[in-house]
């Protein structure tokens, strides 16, 4: 055995024992080093990474917000107005429709004198009454409403398709902008929606639920129903709609949620 070892060493080759020790050392050293690096990276992200500066979005760590925004861009590439949320027969729709939020519903609305304000330019505001809205073609949708919390419910809504509204009131110029912003009367709740999603054929200004006028807790007199977004973007009790090339303020995006929140 000894002579064999010497022979190997004379040739400059490693003995099997040396090979074993060397490879074991390199492997474990690399394993521990890589694990330490990964763990430090994680600790940094989890503990040390700075919060984003509060602005249109807030409440998330800077690198995580960056990732959300980058991921939005990646998934926007597969967005198509021809991709629809699944629709269902009327019989599938829930009779007891879930109510999950009352932010922005503080002020009772006088439906008779109510006007939807559409800010066409900073100085020019279009006002649309409920009767005028109801005179436009009615679009019904029965779809699976999805809450960001995770629950879903098949619901039946009806109202004016956004595209019909845009065409009727000649808002084509405004629709060329990047975003729409919607606000409740008390300005407590507000959402920003990218224009492709806003103009999606399933997006409606809803004034009926289960063939009845909206009740206050569901957003009377008119709310947004946008099946390509989570519930958080389906603003109840719309007071005004405006258009912008920048992201309008968004209630939940200020609480650490993804601005896009698209489905």
């Amino acid at each position: 055995m000894q002579s064999e070892k010497n022979k190997e060493q004379e040739k400059g080759n490693l003995t099997e024992g040396q090979k074993i020790r060397r490879r074991t050392f390199i492997s474990f050293f690399s394993f521990i080093a890589l694990n330490s690096a990964a763990y430090s990276g994680w600790r940094w992200l989890y503990k040390k990474a700075p919060e984003e500066a509060a602005g249109i979005t807030a409440g998330a760590k800077k690198p995580l917000r960056r990732a959300l925004n980058k991921t939005e861009l990646a998934f926007r590439k597969i967005f198509s107005p021809n991709h629809f949320a699944k629709t269902y027969p009327k019989s599938s729709a829930a009779k007891k429709v879930r109510v999950n939020g009352d932010i922005g519903l503080g002020k009772p609305v006088d439906t008779a004198n109510w006007k939807l304000k559409v800010v066409k330019t900073p100085g020019e505001v279009l006002q649309v009454s409920l009767e005028e809205l109801k005179a436009l073609p009615k679009t019904e949708i029965i779809f699976d409403f999805k809450c960001v919390e995770g629950w879903d419910q098949i619901q039946h809504w009806a109202g004016v398709k956004l595209m019909d509204f845009i065409r009727h009131y000649h808002l084509e110029e405004q629709a060329k902008m990047e975003y729409a912003g919607l606000v409740t009367p008390d300005k407590e709740y507000y959402v920003g929606i990218d224009m492709p999603s806003f103009l999606h054929p399933q997006t409606i200004l809803a004034y009926e639920m289960n063939d009845q006028p909206l009740r206050p807790e569901h957003g009377a007199p008119v709310r947004l129903i946008i099946p390509v977004k989570y519930g958080i973007k389906n603003l109840k009790n719309i007071a005004s709609i405006s258009f912008s090339n920048n992201r309008p303020p968004d209630y939940w995006a200020e609480q650490g949620y993804d601005y896009y929140s698209g489905l």
């Binding site: 597969i78 967005f79 198509s80 991709h83 629809f84 949320a85 999805k146 390509v228």
Partner: peptide, 8 residues
């Protein structure tokens, strides 16, 4: 469940 409409 991430993109149920776009990947319907």
């Amino acid at each position: 469940i991430y993109k149920p409409a776009q990947l319907n």
